[in-house]
Amino acid sequence: MKNKKHEELLTAFIDNELKSQEELRAFEEALKEDPSLEFDLKAESLTKNILKNRSVRDKMPGKRKEGILRALAAERISTQKKFTFKENIYNRKFIGFSTAAVILIAIILLLFNRPPGVNIGINISKQTGENNIVVLAANNFEKYMAGDKSVQFVSNNPEEIKNYFRTNGVDYETYIPDFDNYSLVGAFVTDHKGVKLANHIYSSPDGKYIYIFQVHENYLQGDSIVRITNDLLNYLKLGNDYKTTQKEYITVLKHKDKKVFAMVSNLDAEKLPINFYK
């Protein structure tokens, strides 16, 4: 049997994955046209049957299983210790109202009692909205850490990753820094309103990750694909870095060579190698 379409129909038929009546009819037609398909059907069904019922299912060794359960219990205790203020307070209607009222009064008192001349930098730190570069980068990183997003291209070679971006629709020159003690995991391209943007990831042997989302400033200005406030863009263009912490991640923004780099990591802020541009 050499007909690729028939082969795939046969496989899907065996797995009960022929979803449309059309495909089912096409497969029945193929069976009538080519009687030798019967052999293929039996051979492939037999193979599936052997795998399903005869292959040895290795069980996790008892001691290792116990070890994992203990590690989970320890994790549970440590999670209980660090509660997340925002998620837990505001999700409770009754407690939420009184707590929010107390916080509001506290903020008003702080604002009216602060000494003259203190700049609280509220314009720069106001980075919200789903297309905002800080939010996009943090969401991508979080999805990656949760397993909802994965690298499309696995490589630890910066040149291969740059080439992957070039050949997958990223129309600006990318920069892939080299970090001591971190190895490149790979890259993925995200699509924002039809524009392809570059993302790549590093990992360390102790489970720390650095994610970099780089966007050309052409896509950050005017009717922008990715949003950033003008205040912040100007602040970055002056050579400043912008740091913010969300949940347990730190995000750093940098501007260099007409690109804005959003770096997100689960490292401690002071350990994050932010001076990466050589």
Partner: peptide, 18 residues
Amino acid sequence: ASDLIQETYLKSFRFFDK
């Protein structure tokens, strides 16, 4: 394989609310 499972379970527990 055991190390991989341990890492997977710790990670999935941390993100189980997702």
